[in-house]
Design a protein around this nucleic acid. Sequence first.
DNA 1: GGATAAACGAGACGGTACGTCCTGTCTTCTA
DNA 2: TAGAAGACAGGACGTACCGTCTCGTTTATCC
Lengths: 213, 213, 213, 213
Amino acid sequence: MQSRTPQGPPGPHPRAGRPRSAAADAAILGATRDALVDLGWSKLTLGDVATRAGVAKTTLYRRWAGKNELVVDAVAVLFDELELPDRGSLTADVVGVVLQFAALLERPETKTALMAVVAEATRDDSLRLRIRTAIVDRQKCLVILGRERAQARGELPYEDSPEAAARNADMIFDVIAGAVVHRALVSAEPVDEEWARGLAGLLVTGLGGPSRG
Amino acid sequence: MQSRTPQGPPGPHPRAGRPRSAAADAAILGATRDALVDLGWSKLTLGDVATRAGVAKTTLYRRWAGKNELVVDAVAVLFDELELPDRGSLTADVVGVVLQFAALLERPETKTALMAVVAEATRDDSLRLRIRTAIVDRQKCLVILGRERAQARGELPYEDSPEAAARNADMIFDVIAGAVVHRALVSAEPVDEEWARGLAGLLVTGLGGPSRG
Amino acid sequence: MQSRTPQGPPGPHPRAGRPRSAAADAAILGATRDALVDLGWSKLTLGDVATRAGVAKTTLYRRWAGKNELVVDAVAVLFDELELPDRGSLTADVVGVVLQFAALLERPETKTALMAVVAEATRDDSLRLRIRTAIVDRQKCLVILGRERAQARGELPYEDSPEAAARNADMIFDVIAGAVVHRALVSAEPVDEEWARGLAGLLVTGLGGPSRG
Amino acid sequence: MQSRTPQGPPGPHPRAGRPRSAAADAAILGATRDALVDLGWSKLTLGDVATRAGVAKTTLYRRWAGKNELVVDAVAVLFDELELPDRGSLTADVVGVVLQFAALLERPETKTALMAVVAEATRDDSLRLRIRTAIVDRQKCLVILGRERAQARGELPYEDSPEAAARNADMIFDVIAGAVVHRALVSAEPVDEEWARGLAGLLVTGLGGPSRG
DNA sequence: GGATAAACGAGACGGTACGTCCTGTCTTCTA
DNA sequence: TAGAAGACAGGACGTACCGTCTCGTTTATCC
């Protein structure tokens, strides 16, 4: 299965027949988020989404190949609003990015959906790609931005090579995002400012912590 | 829904009629793992598991309440084999624990199931508890053990209070486990020794890295 | 598609598992007749029949392969009550058999269903066989019985050979049944006693009629 | 539902805008017959007919109200070619008319469609009227013509009144047409010259047959 | 000859039914 | 009483057509 949204009809005439309703797209994605909040991932039904959106099931299947693709798109737009204001120091920026992630993860539609589609993606490469471009990369940008600022401030050294820089960014991203996700979803503990500061401290100074020489 | 495995028949006669077959339990759990490998989480059906196990569906439902509980139990036993040999230094022990986690996560049955049950657990507290006791706590023990060793070696300071110790252990665990899971399942990149050493270095010395004062 | 009703489970043990509910069979056939009366053939839905019968769709599909087979069986039982009391003469017996046929054809469930399944049977040999054994042969028996009585009374000569007898019975049956069906369904005129007497007269004395030498 | 073919646009201007394509009508009817041959009545879809005819669905629905009406019109034209050459005697003319009917009924498009639309007509009076004018009356003409010839030859007496004549023609028509249809579609036996002669003999001389006085 | 108006192709749309699959419960017989 | 077998009610699946609609385009007639 594969999403069909991005593909326009590539025929000789780019427009033939009645065009697809843009309103329907929006209604479906909104209804999907509502249904996620009400029912959670596993009890969400495409038929129910269609009903909530006031749309026929066919209209839904014409645009998305299945539940996975639909939910990724429905949740992805929530990640558009991510941004990272400059808080003046590396530690403060890490706290900022952590709280941003956490705020999204605490939303009920995100909480129930994100792990589920990641789980599905372990057996579906195209779905994984979709998740990466629609969700993951948006988050990673913030990490890279924060590192650049810290380097400009002199808080972090510049990397020796672009490859090392990329590897390092991936690592930092996996650590921050992974920690937040694990805290929020597996440990099911709140990701509040105190915890975020603790994580920032750990990242900046290491396990030995500020008490060590 | 709730698992029924732990409950013994608490009736007046502790044993009446034919006792439950222990062989059936093992066959079901094994069949569940096989089905996870073959089909993945979302296409696994209890009817199919029962068939694979050579068991009637009734027998399966008499022991587990549903797919979630069954899969948690089926995967949990894989986590029993976790252990942490003393490798002589904090860094080496972190590498060891990371590779242990990763080895489990790379198994196809774990990979497809773990995120899925965590996703389900976001709406089911008893399932979350089950996951914690059956899987998460087994991992956390390793983290705590590693910290104790490091403290004994003098690599890490002792905590000021038991509460601080617990908080600190939770944090370390969320960071390590979260990073490994994110790397393996979201980024879908290999968790090899090189990456593990990078993570250990980051954890021990912080973002500034060994090059900083 | 093929009906599944007659096939018993031919396994080694003739009885394993829960037996099929005989009540469900009866409820389904009754609901089918009701739905035929209310909706007619073309608007009859298997889902609706299942609902009327208080039965799941699966239960219905486990027994019948589709609408055609189900409706044939539902209508067939109406033909069980056919019988031909001896009215004393060939003409009177023809009138009797004609009115019997007509009474069945005028029932709303039969009227809407019979032509439809015959139409389907033009492209489905197994369905045609089913119709023949379940419906047509029951009618033909009456024709053969009537002829035997007439021969015993001396109103009709005996046939020269069994083959000729069979051919002759087929012909008479096609004429009587065909005429009644055509009158009732195509011409949509009533098959009353007057018409029946006219047909009997035509059959017994030929086109020239009683007025001819 | 009702056919729309005969209705011309009765507006103030009898013709304004682009006129309907006569080629489209022919293509649709031809495609309908082809689809009947290929798929049979029940699997014929209007979308498929439109595609076969190289026409948009809209064009089809602008002319016919539905499957029933379309198929009646598509099949009706086949009945235009009916005629009855004078074969010199009543018996020979009956044989002729029987073989004419049979030849039409054996065509695959007719065989699968005729009973189906008659079945639909049991619940749709306008459809029944359409069938009668488009198909049935064309056949009945042949019966009436044959009777007139026989009367002119002296083989049959003249009727006492116009009403009796009409009643008698209806009866003969129901008997002949019904017998042929029943033989061809229900009994599914060939309507060949031998059978036709048998039927003619039965009609002319009655059940007692030529052997009786 | 430009405006008008309907027919036309294409295909999206809301809706209904399809026939299949899975769930979790039940009923029967056997061990 | 457990267990194997399988029927059962219920509900979602993804597909196929239905008959309508909304586009852009074509082909007539009328002013």
